[in-house]
Design a protein around this nucleic acid. Sequence first.
DNA 1: AGCACGCCGACT
DNA 2: GTCGGCGTGCTC
Length: 803
Amino acid sequence: MTQYAEVIVDVPTMQTNTPYTYVIPAEFQEMLQPGMRVVVPFGNGGRKVQGVVWQLIDQVEDATVTLKAIDTVMDPAPVLDAELMQLADWLAKTTYAFTITCLQTMLPNALKANYEKWVTPTASLPEETRQVLFGQQDRLLWDDDVAPAVVKQLMRLAKQQQVTVSYAVQNKGHVKTVTMVKPALTPAELQAARASLRKGALKQEQLLTYLIDHSKPVQQTVLEKQLGLSASTIKTGEANGWLSRSQAEVYRDPFQSAVTTTKALQLNPDQQTAVDAINQATDDQQSTPFLLQGVTGSGKTEVYLQTIANTLAQGKQALMLVPEISLTPQIVGRVRGRFGRQVAVLHSGLSAGERFDEWRRISRGEARVVVGARSAVFAPIKNLGVIIVDEEHEASYKQEDNPRYHARDVALWRGRYHHCPVVLGSATPSLESRARAQKQRYQRLLLPTRANQQALPEVSVVDMTEELKHHKESNFSTALMTALKDRLERGEQSLLMLNRRGFSSFVMCRDCGFVLTCPNCDISLTLHMDTKTMKCHYCGHEEPIPHRCPNCKSRHIRYYGTGTQKVEAELHELLPEARVIRMDVDTTRRKGAHERLLKQFGAHQADILLGTQMIAKGLDFPDVTLVGVLNADTALGLPDFRASERTFQLLTQVSGRAGRAKKAGEVVIQTYNPDHYAIQLAKRQDYEQFFVREMHLRHRGNYPPYYFAVKLTVSDETESVAATAIHQIVQQLQTTLSPNAIMLGPTPGAIARINKRYYYQLVIKYKQEPQLQTALFKLLSQAQRKSRSGLQIAIDNNPMSFM
DNA sequence: AGCACGCCGACT
DNA sequence: GTCGGCGTGCTC
């Protein structure tokens, strides 16, 4: 019989990042299982914390410690199965996060603990004090709202045992229930009851008539509405023994709007080949990763849907990840249209309760297809048959705080666990994935043509330096203006994309397009207004801000950046008759605003949709025949090794928005670097050439995917503390790292000070460093001790950017 | 994290 | 002389 449980407690620190052993009280011995949440005493103050049962054991190794017992068990069944527990362990190790943090990431927020601290008076507390502190209440909630003076007093009283402090761990995961009503008597008996009613008891007569005719349980509120009864009539019915009431569990239904069902579409030969290969893997339980590389509009979604259909036919479940930004009603509608109520959708717009309900539907196997953004990769699916990662190159799959996981990596892990295929789909795969396909680690599936036979849009590149010579400064070139006017006349729609403005500025010459770059790194320098210098974030190089362009001696050198508002204003001036919808963080902040704007545009209530990258992904508007990119360079100017890749991907993706239906599309890209390979190859929509080119550069610069990378960031309120700490880290690591490892930095963070904290960072590039993981964990433990003074350290394994 | 224990300054 | 400030160490 198992007597002990190892529990991971909800105390996210390095020192407590290990299982603690507890005695299992007799009443829980039979039912307790790993993956259940428990409440355990922790520490000597009678504090209670939540924990997750990690393992059951028969014997304890170290008999010297006296063990405490589990307080309560919070779940009747495990909330995390063996797979997810194992996954949490792997995640913790690979992302340098605490195990408890990983476990919590996998659970819906509703299952996170709610801690409360209560104070109760004891007999020795003088009556006056009791009156002042407690009034009519017999206990007092001790939270952050308690005044400091009262806190002091309470602490003193606790020491004198005039009050006692108790801790409560609350379960937030509330199951919504409704009251059901059903007859408790036979129809004959009910008829007898109806016959003996006093005259004029109309409501009761109605109720009895209903009960005679309907033997099935019905929701009380539905019954009330249907018959126009009040709750008291039903209560009377219950009191008379006619009916019985019970509680039934229901799911909160966020948006079960009607969907039009769709049938499987006819596949073209390439799509068919892809579907066959993936289905074969599902059927043979092969955990092959596939890279589904298909040009924009090539019908990747249909491939996904048909492999999901096959998975369901095999009696298995499917998981489909999409970037949060493209988790639109459009895509959700397509999946729901095919698989109906079997689909669960996990997105950020759900309330905690709704999310909890979707999670339970999945866990119970009632939802067999799961669609969701990043965190949906942890959906509690027991029997996976296929995992799809759409737009696998999207940076939003990487979580930016702990645990810093990449959903694509988690998907691959789960694929291996379930022996099921993982499909990574993209028109512009990440270099990492494309390179793995090259090395036969992934099987590559190609969709080289558009599903509607439509040609890829014609792309033209406009050199903005030339434009500026001809007329005054404008965000719009003549070519783009002409194209826009043309669409207006024809009643067709246009998309205008303004590249995200880098959060650190760079300096560029308006005359010749020259961007100041670092002499050592081939990377543009970043403007630091605080120190009035140009800095390189890779090697720390620093130089003064130029007033003349070093290349053409022009004085038109300035920092770069255009806001959507400014562009909108100019658009109104140039094309007063055009109806414009602006989409950026300002106009989409409110919940649902994003969908509303897209809907408006889809309904042709505007001619031009102006926005940031959020308009680049996955939108499908048949009347859009023109796509304009106002400033293709912004991302290129960022001092990051992925700058070219991001630019290429973005331009290709946004170009794909044009000409999706019958009409041909046109794309105009405005740039100050018309000859840059990322722009030229995006113009030709030549991913393969870009891949070759970029891989060559990555190879030369020792960047991923040729090298692994890990980024360390330290921060402190005092700059010198952070600086000293990072230098100590460098010294310490240098003793463990091999000579092949390359250190970049330490350098100040891209934003040297955020929230009054100073940031310093260090990037390590390496091929093989068996000691590194241990060294980094050691570093974390050491840092924990110093964290009292405010020093923080973060480790980002395989960072998306070095900035 | 949060609590207890333990060592130094301004008060009854 | 004590009360109470916050600097370490531990939590099955």
